[in-house]
Amino acid sequence: MGDIHWKMLQVGAWDECQYRRVLAAEENVDFRIHVENQTRARDDVSRKQLRLYQLYSRTSGKHIQVLGRRISARGEDGDKYAQLLVETDTFGSQVRIKGKETEFYLCMNRKGKLVGKPDGTSKECVFIEKVLENNYTALMSAKYSGWYVGFTKKGRPRKGPKTRENQQDVHFMKRYPKGQTELQKPFKYTTVTKRSRRIRPTHPG
């Protein structure tokens, strides 16, 4: 019995030591790094959310257009080339943007140039959506960190290396086309009320 009791104590001491090591490791984990890494990772498992809207450029005063391989920000409200289908991952704020009319994807190549591509599977066609303090949205390349979708006052694309998050050139506002409603219905909360006690009717005896 003495040997068995001693072995049980040894096992208990080993388990406690391992437990303390796990706790110490968890205390040293920087959760912010974990969130940033998860944000940059593609989510290929969860259901995608599909939106239809326009992106209004703060500098040009017009909307982004996907004109096949050519990209501009000269579209009027309701312009068919300015209507964008935006596929959003449910985690990570990463999006792929496709022109509804041309079915070409908005992409950024290794030189930082905005181009349209028929196939949007490349990481060059993935952007990280960032909501800024001024309520505008910026789109940073998922492949080339620090490079943003941007346009000049004339609606011409800016090259990624010449863009910064605080520049008005990279600020956009989401707008639905005229007469167009959201493709996906917003989530509705169901109000649950406390169930009242049922009172049985009394019958005359």
Results as ranks from 00 to 15, higher is better:
1 M>S: 09
1 M>R: 07
4 I>N: 05
4 I>M: 07
6 W>N: 09
9 L>G: 07
9 L>K: 14
9 L>M: 08
11 V>M: 04
13 A>N: 05
16 E>I: 00
18 Q>L: 03
18 Q>F: 02
21 R>A: 05
21 R>M: 05
22 V>L: 14
23 L>P: 01
23 L>Q: 13
25 A>V: 11
25 A>S: 10
30 D>A: 08
35 V>G: 07
36 E>D: 14
42 R>K: 15
43 D>M: 06
48 K>V: 14
48 K>I: 13
49 Q>H: 12
52 L>I: 08
54 Q>I: 02
57 S>Y: 02
58 R>C: 00
58 R>G: 00
60 S>P: 04
65 Q>H: 06
66 V>M: 01
70 R>C: 01
70 R>G: 00
76 E>V: 02
81 Y>P: 01
85 L>V: 11
86 V>S: 06
95 V>K: 05
98 K>N: 07
99 G>R: 01
100 K>Q: 14
103 E>V: 05
106 L>W: 08
110 R>N: 09
110 R>L: 04
113 K>T: 13
115 V>K: 15
115 V>Y: 15
119 D>A: 06
120 G>A: 12
123 K>D: 14
123 K>N: 13
124 E>N: 15
125 C>W: 13
126 V>Y: 05
128 I>A: 07
134 N>G: 04
138 A>Q: 01
140 M>F: 00
144 Y>A: 06
144 Y>L: 04
146 G>K: 03
153 K>H: 03
154 K>M: 02
155 G>S: 05
156 R>A: 13
159 K>R: 13
165 E>A: 13
166 N>I: 02
169 D>H: 09
170 V>M: 05
174 K>Y: 02
175 R>I: 11
178 K>V: 10
180 Q>A: 15
182 E>M: 09
186 P>Q: 06
186 P>Y: 02
188 K>R: 12
189 Y>L: 12
192 V>L: 14
195 R>D: 12
198 R>L: 11
